[in-house]
Nucleic acid binder design. Structure first.
Lengths: 152, 152
DNA sequence: CGTGCATGGTTTCATGTGCAACTATTAGTT
DNA sequence: AACTAATAGTTGCACATGAAACCATGCACG
């Protein structure tokens, strides 16, 4: 991309940050309907569950990194989820500052019920794209994101 | 896309809502540095300015639709921007319930200064993509978004 | 060992946001 | 014309969030 027409006019419809934000917002809103109404989870809680389901055992720090959420926000989500008996935490034997987080049976059960719904919904979401296009999309997103990464 | 492997496992790295959100978040954060630090604008205020710059004259309602922000949020952004002398509002002659919003000279001047910076930054952002790829990306995003649109 | 520094997680506090109630104006129906 | 419904925008309130202060634990270096 070397379009150097840097005039003061710009068309927001072709401004990537705007388009990205709008799409992400709509997608996120649609997804939220799946877990909010039926399972009474907010975004933060859903993300914590999703990562624990995905990775089995994690610390809060790792969840912060994965979800890009503030540690206070993660901490609060964990409190709620633990209160609802969906997950447990115990101080890590390796380092008492960390806590190992994992889903309880109930948490697992919830995810086993929820995940297929989410997957089915996602299949519909990406239905307008051919499989090959979808891969290219993820690849482009990866290339856009890489220079923006702070650490790792 | 007709991959019907709806198992209970799913890899968040290939879960579009997650990837989309993460990218949008990073992009938005990077962009915010341009207008926050130097111009003391928050996201809502930036969006209002951007749309007024783009479309010259709008009502709050139209800005709500364009930015997908709550009308209270837009209303508050407008109050601040007007207080800073960057824009003005006057009741629309066509309908006293509406107010026509437009940038002041100062608001125009700010955008004339800011927009080229934003455009230059965006050029860097999309540099990893070939021009043709970029068009395909926007096209795919459009196709993903269309079914999610509520109205219009 | 022990004193200081770093780190994971919690809590406090100030702020921004969304929802819902409200005001003012206009449109519709009879 | 009058009464009702709808619409644009504002405000009150309750809640979620992020930054920073805080606490507890572990590590490094003397």
């Amino acid at each position: 991309m070397t379009d150097e027409n840097l005039s003061t006019e710009f068309d927001l419809e072709h401004f990537l940050p705007y388009r990205l934000d709008r799409l992400a917002d709509r997608v996120s809103e649609a997804l939220a309907q799946l877990y909010e109404a039926h399972y009474d989870l907010n975004v933060a809680q859903w993300r914590v569950l999703a990562w624990l389901h995905h990775r089995h055992e994690l610390t809060a720090k790792q969840i912060c990194a994965a979800t890009r959420m503030d540690k206070a926000r993660v901490s609060r989500a964990i409190q709620v989820l633990e209160g609802r008996g969906l997950m447990v935490r115990r101080p890590s034997p390796r380092d008492q500052r960390w806590q190992d987080l994992r889903l309880t049976e109930a948490g697992q059960a919830l995810m086993v019920e929820l995940v297929p719904q989410v997957r089915a919904w996602e299949a519909e979401l990406v239905a307008p794209l051919a499989t090959e296009e979808y891969h290219r999309l993820l690849d482009m997103m990866e290339r856009l994101e890489r220079p923006l990464r702070d650490d790792e």
